[in-house]
Nucleic acid binder design. Sequence first.
DNA 1: TGGATAAACATAGA
DNA 2: CTCTATGTTTATCC
Lengths: 264, 264
Amino acid sequence: MPELPEIYNISEQLNKEIVGLVITNSTIFQEKSINIKTKDFNNSIINQEIFNVTSRGKWVFITFKSLDKLFINLGMGGDLLYTTEIPKKKHQAIINFDNGYLLSFRFWWFGYIHFVKKGETHHMTNKLGIDIFRDNITKKEFLTLVKARRGSLKSFLLNQKNIAGIGNYYIHDLLFKSKINPLKKIPEVSTRKLGMLYNVILSEFEDSISKRGAHYELDIYNQKGLFQANNVAYKEGELCLCGTKIKKVKTGSTSSYYCPRCQK
Amino acid sequence: MPELPEIYNISEQLNKEIVGLVITNSTIFQEKSINIKTKDFNNSIINQEIFNVTSRGKWVFITFKSLDKLFINLGMGGDLLYTTEIPKKKHQAIINFDNGYLLSFRFWWFGYIHFVKKGETHHMTNKLGIDIFRDNITKKEFLTLVKARRGSLKSFLLNQKNIAGIGNYYIHDLLFKSKINPLKKIPEVSTRKLGMLYNVILSEFEDSISKRGAHYELDIYNQKGLFQANNVAYKEGELCLCGTKIKKVKTGSTSSYYCPRCQK
DNA sequence: TGGATAAACATAGA
DNA sequence: CTCTATGTTTATCC
């Protein structure tokens, strides 16, 4: 499940590669991935020229010269490859360009490629929260945002309407490095720790982006990233750096792994 | 806080006393209690003849011959007296009839006397749930209704959108007599106990109505009711009939008192 | 817990 | 936690 650093990286790579290219063909293998009929989708994007590519949270935005857009979400695992040959692995969609290259969209489960006409809004992204990286959010703004709420900090961070881009892989590491217990509610966490969390998010994401994302995700060139988090092991009973056994707790629909000694 | 039995009793008493009477005057001391301007309210009801009086849950409905209506809610404590003399206790409204009698509305806190024109709907009562007593709900209907939900049974019963008329006084007794622990969620309660609960609600309400309501509430003649619940004491540590100490637990915004032995 | 409303939280579904 | 929709609870207001 690619999160902010991977999506940021993918969008920047695409921005380098496909701006100015024109779409010559499009093949949809899974109509559930798109938001309109396949025929309409193809008619809408073929012959369009790419204007730019950017991202917000876990969403990639491809803007055409016409200002129509594609909103792409890779869902729970998936990749977006830029290549000349159709990949052998099962994919949901292929988009061809006039330079002989193509984009292959592969979703492990749910994923979206939504076409949105110029000026129209997209219901899945118009409520997206801040992208702490692209929006140049200051620590003060971050603290104001967080402290307005009283629920669990982990839920807050994972909710894309608050802060877009944090998912289940990075959250453990972010909380570990900020020494925050994943069960805590926002009012129970000191301002100092919330400030530390802000620093950690920025530095961790910058670090990961510079390494082209997480080690188990692919970039558009089919290359794995070099970033490895996992300061807190993903198995109950494994040892933290401090020697304490990692604890597993249910936090909503997923679990959290944390060190009872380091994360108070 | 009058609940179904008291409200049922008040509406039936009114139905015996005021049908056919004509309103000659109306005085509003607290404009927050009504839904339109005082002047409009008075103009709307003066000279109207009472057609009938009925109730649903904690609401009293006075219908005029014109089919305009008054929707009355006594809120958290309050009384509605039918008398010839203006009561000395502070009241929010007085309505006079052509036989020399008057209705005095007294609210301890929030209470409503809403005027609704013929055919129009009233937003506070149009989502009201069933009145188990007036609607002749069968046990099967009751079970279907309850079992469609998964939240706490106590919340379900107190929510006027589900079943109208149960409040904080009767709820303890109803759960005690049904041997249901007030902390249970609906799926955790056996069908047998839910069926028992249905019987208990009907029998308890019938009993209370026959005694003109709870012992601490007043009917329209300023007389206290004769019904006493309190099988489960309202003080932590007091003894249940079985000798076990009553336990107090938080259930949402209020507390529940229950016998850990009798109410499993 | 009287009732409205909004936010917060939980769960199922696609 | 990918996102939506729905249900349920909590908090605050009047």
